[in-house]
């Protein structure tokens, strides 16, 4: 055979390496997919057992207000109304996001538009530091500082939605801020130049062009913060009061899905109704984080089409 042809047919070392690398990548991805599927399967099989094994009505589970899985009501149906926890979770999440968003976007504007040099040098490390603080620290500060202050201001025990909101606000602030910074930085310079050249002041440029162009990224940041707040367990559990009651005001003890889960899961027997009911709460959490994820992707796609 002619030597050039022979050389062409011989597999190069690089090509072999490429093939091996692809195989390893594929294996890693399959492992991740497998883990995710397993988690879904496990949580769903346990969580759904409440409904088909213990014969709890799904609608009752979502709308009844009494959570006491050990007891049964007059019809012999266990008292597993998850509404107080669902409401609690949503309230702390929404309030935390509402309070954190203006602060986060304001800080991000300062860091990218108004004082990019000093802002970046001081604020960026600070926000990054805040991201790294473990949630138990936030919870502890909430317990020793926020709760007593609320107790003094509003009376009662101080535990409740308001305390949870305060702690979560500080926890999600750095996440939302740093993602907002990225979103604002991604706005190309030529938008700012063109706006200035048309006679816009800096504030007009920020307000009318930069924020508008960064909107998908900013929304993603907010939803990301909400997802984090919704899933946070420890810090919230330390300050919310852990009473599975419908919150009638912001300073009465309440509970979230996560706080009930972390408190209860160690004290129940596998396979019992009490245990299954907690798994059902976990299923709700899982589905909600899925929803947050889908919302983020949806916003991202909408933003991508626009620009």
């Amino acid at each position: 055979m002619d030597p050039i042809r022979q050389r062409l047919l011989k597999k190069s070392r690089q090509a072999k390496l490429e093939k091996r690398g692809r195989l390893i990548g594929l294996l890693c991805i399959s492992l991740i997919v497998l883990v995710v599927v397993a988690i879904f399967y496990f949580v769903a099989s346990r969580g759904l057992a409440t409904f088909y094994h213990d014969k709890v009505n799904l609608w009752d589970f979502l709308t009844k207000q009494v959570w006491n899985p050990g007891t049964k009501d007059s019809h012999g149906v266990p008292a597993v109304g998850a509404l107080p926890m669902i409401v609690g979770s949503f309230l702390v999440t929404i309030f935390a996001a509402l309070v954190a968003t203006p602060f986060a976007i304001g800080a991000a504007i300062f860091m990218t538009e108004i004082s990019p040099r000093r802002g970046m040098r001081i604020l960026k490390p600070v926000t990054e530091l805040l991201v790294g603080i473990p949630s138990v620290v936030y919870g502890f500060i909430g317990l020793t500082v926020v709760v007593p202050v609320i107790r003094r201001l509003f009376g009662g025990t101080g535990f409740g939605i308001l305390a949870g909101t305060c702690v979560l606000f500080v926890m999600i602030l750095p996440t939302v801020t740093s993602m907002s910074v990225d979103a604002l930085k991604a706005v190309p310079r030529y938008y700012r130049d063109a706006s200035a050249a048309l006679g816009a002041t800096r504030w007009q440029t920020i307000y009318k062009v930069v924020l508008r162009a960064a909107m998908p990224g900013l929304l993603t940041a907010i939803v990301f913060g909400m997802a984090r707040a919704f899933g946070e367990a420890l810090a919230v559990q330390m300050v919310i009061g852990n009473a599975a009651l419908m919150p009638h005001n912001l300073v009465s003890p309440a509970a979230t899905l996560t706080s009930v889960l972390t408190l209860g899961i160690g004290n129940t027997i596998m396979g019992s109704l009490e245990n299954n009911a907690l798994w059902s709460l976990a299923l709700i959490l899982l589905l909600m984080s899925l929803v947050f994820n889908l919302v983020i992707r949806w916003i991202g796609r909408k933003g991508a089409v626009k620009s």
Binding site: Y190, A194, S195, L198
Partner: peptide
């Protein structure tokens, strides 16, 4: 407002 400017890259606002 008196001296307008057009840039190299054709980028209208989004």
């Amino acid at each position: 407002k008196e001296v307008g400017m057009v840039f190299q890259q054709p980028h209208p606002f989004p």
